[in-house]
Computed example of a mutant assay.
Amino acid sequence: MRSTQGTLRASRCGLAVRVACALALGHGGSAAAQITFDVIGPHEYELPVDFDPFNVFVQYGMVQEDDRLFNRNGDRTDGSGAQRIVGMSKYVRFWSPESNRNIGVAWEVIVPEVAIRNRSLADADDRHVSGIGDPLTGFAIWYKPAANATLGFQSFVQIPVGTEKVSDTNWKNLSSFFWDWRITDKLGWTGDAGIVWQTRRDNGIRPGLSWHTNHRFGWRASQHLEPFLAVDAEYLEARDGAPSAHVIDAGPGLMIHTFANQSISLRYSTSVDGRNHSVNDSFNIKYAYVW
């Protein structure tokens, strides 16, 4: 193995979350929900090659307040007032194929947990809905063009078998390219860019194609603390009567490197520009455990 055990453990702690918070999309009216893959952290794609197989468990949590939205002119107006609480439990298996030790491969299974509260709705049964969201599964593959860089591709399928009131009722494919660049010993940039394709929903509407990109710029201030800046953007094309939409989000975060095989990331995110999209006002947490 090329890496020392200590270096590999450090790399494993940054693997974690590659999956979108792309659920509850059918409950936001004309405004879309969170940006695809906005859950990633500052070491998300700092991945090793030529390594022994290992596992990762990740638990995410997100609380979003839908008090404001961008209208068709890009102005901020009153939103639905709903509160969305989302958790995602993820298991990932990582390995480096014997046929080519210069690449890495991962397979993931993600189960979302969703709760939506909106006290302004007329029907009391709709004021608080919750359940298991549509699960996702898929793969990632990558290589290292240089010792301090990673390039890869990932693709996931979201399966419409979640609880009735929180399922989007359609199939999705989320595919993207990703990268990581350790610029210096303290500075790093990790990011992705991709698309989401969807089939028709049970209500007859087929959402348009969407493009997204996510960026995390981190600075390792100490052995345990790494503040970072998050920037996310998304564009959704018009289709079936729904207008096109876009949004740009940004916010600060802090990654806490607790143990060699664990980490916790905290982040606040808000929207700086958008149209026909909810204004992001969310707190996010991620816990990752590697074994």
Rank of each mutant, 00 (worst) to 15 (best):
M1A: 06
M1D: 03
T4F: 00
T7M: 03
R9H: 03
R9W: 01
A10E: 11
V19M: 10
A22E: 10
L23R: 12
G28L: 02
G29F: 02
S30E: 13
A31W: 10
A31V: 08
F37R: 15
E44S: 15
Y45S: 09
L47T: 10
P48V: 01
V49M: 01
D52G: 06
D52W: 06
N55K: 10
F57T: 12
Y60Q: 14
G61H: 06
M62Q: 10
Q64M: 04
D66G: 02
F70G: 06
F70E: 05
N71K: 01
N71R: 03
S80R: 04
G81W: 02
A82S: 12
I85A: 04
S89Q: 13
R93I: 07
F94D: 03
E98M: 03
E98F: 02
N100H: 04
G104Q: 01
A106H: 01
W107V: 14
E108M: 15
I110T: 14
V111I: 14
P112E: 07
P112I: 05
P112D: 05
A115P: 00
N118R: 06
R119W: 05
D126I: 00
D126S: 04
R127H: 04
D134C: 12
P135A: 03
T137Y: 12
Y143D: 13
Y143A: 14
K144Q: 11
K144N: 13
N148F: 05
F153T: 07
F153H: 10
S155Q: 13
F156E: 10
F156A: 09
I159V: 15
P160V: 07
G162L: 06
W171H: 08
T184S: 13
W189R: 05
D192Q: 13
D192R: 09
A193N: 09
G194A: 11
Q198E: 14
L209S: 04
H212V: 08
T213D: 13
N214W: 11
S222F: 01
H224G: 00
V231R: 10
D240Q: 09
A242P: 00
S244A: 15
S244N: 15
A245W: 05
P252A: 07
L254I: 08
M255L: 09
I256G: 00
H257E: 04
Q262T: 15
S265G: 05
D273A: 15
S278T: 09
S278P: 00
N280D: 12
N280W: 04
I285N: 01
K286E: 10
A288I: 11
